[in-house]
């Protein structure tokens, strides 16, 4: 286990070094990624220029939601972005290499890409989060920070599992482009705003099917003290992370079996 972790970080380091070979590209990608996130911040700031509360949430409280989602996804981008290369690898046969090495194929796939520019998103997310927390009236307790940290880490697991799962379509439909995984990944933007404003349909989807809400809205309500929030909501990130990781590993195994059954 320790050995696998060590190899994981070594492989990531290799990708990092590769990425730094192209320094200009790193900055452009980082700036581009940040600008994308900034769009929703700009929207928020403009929006709150005309409105004082959204579904009972203040601007700063909503920034907490934004920050949690951004940070979680940023970390995922740094460490597990290789899954977006799965389709290309399956199609050109590079995936075969993964099967003849004595380390788990999933680990190899995670480290297949260097998206170290994810650090931009992570930093922005943390800044936004801290800003939001500072300006909200938070009743700090001993568990506030641990819950927030747990939320971000579980958020990383969730976004990584979902992007992993959706990219596995490549096993069954190698010609499918990455439009579908991108679409699903983008649905996390719903969780950047309080779920109270949405209709019932979306609330259910974002809570149960694509549980982005479990790593932003529910824990935030608890920490920020918005409305009545039962204590067990502190565990929703764990539920989301656990369930999604389980689903991903089950489908991954199926996908591997399929690949070994039909080749490419």
């Amino acid at each position: 286990m320790v050995r696998l972790l060590r190899i994981f970080f070594r492989l990531q380091l290799v990708q990092l070094r590769s990425a730094l070979e192209y320094r200009a590209d790193f900055w452009i990608a980082a700036v581009g990624a940040i600008l994308q996130q900034l769009v929703s911040i700009v929207f928020l700031l403009t929006f709150f220029g005309h409105v004082t509360s959204l579904g009972g949430w203040s601007l700063w409280q909503i920034l907490v939601l934004q920050g949690l989602v951004m940070a979680a996804d940023g970390i995922r981008e740094m460490f597990a972005d290789g899954v977006w290369k799965l389709r290309a690898d399956v199609n050109d046969g590079s995936f075969d290499r993964v099967l003849v090495r004595p380390i788990p194929p999933a680990l190899q796939q995670f480290t297949a890409l260097a998206s170290i520019h994810g650090i931009g998103n992570t930093s922005l997310g943390l800044v936004v989060l801290v800003l939001g927390l500072a300006r909200s009236d938070v009743g700090w307790t001993w568990w506030s920070v641990p819950v927030l940290v747990l939320t971000i880490l579980c958020g990383t697991v969730l976004t990584a599992s979902i992007s992993f799962l959706t990219n596995m379509i490549a096993f069954w439909e190698p010609s499918a482009q990455s439009a579908f995984p991108t679409l699903v990944a983008l649905m996390r933007d719903f969780a950047k705003f309080p779920l109270d404003v949405y209709g019932a349909g979306i609330r259910i989807v974002i809570t149960v099917i694509l549980p982005y809400g479990l790593i932003s809205y529910y824990p935030s309500r608890l920490v920020l003290g918005v409305g009545d929030s039962p204590g067990w909501w502190a565990t929703t990130p764990l539920i989301a992370a656990g369930a999604s990781a389980l689903a991903a590993s089950i489908v991954w195994r199926r996908g591997l079996n399929h690949y070994q059954g039909v080749g490419n």
Partner: peptide, 12 residues
């Protein structure tokens, strides 16, 4: 190539 893949465990 199919045989090679069978021998190396890439295909079942």
């Amino acid at each position: 190539s199919t045989t090679i893949k069978l021998l190396t465990g890439i295909l079942v």
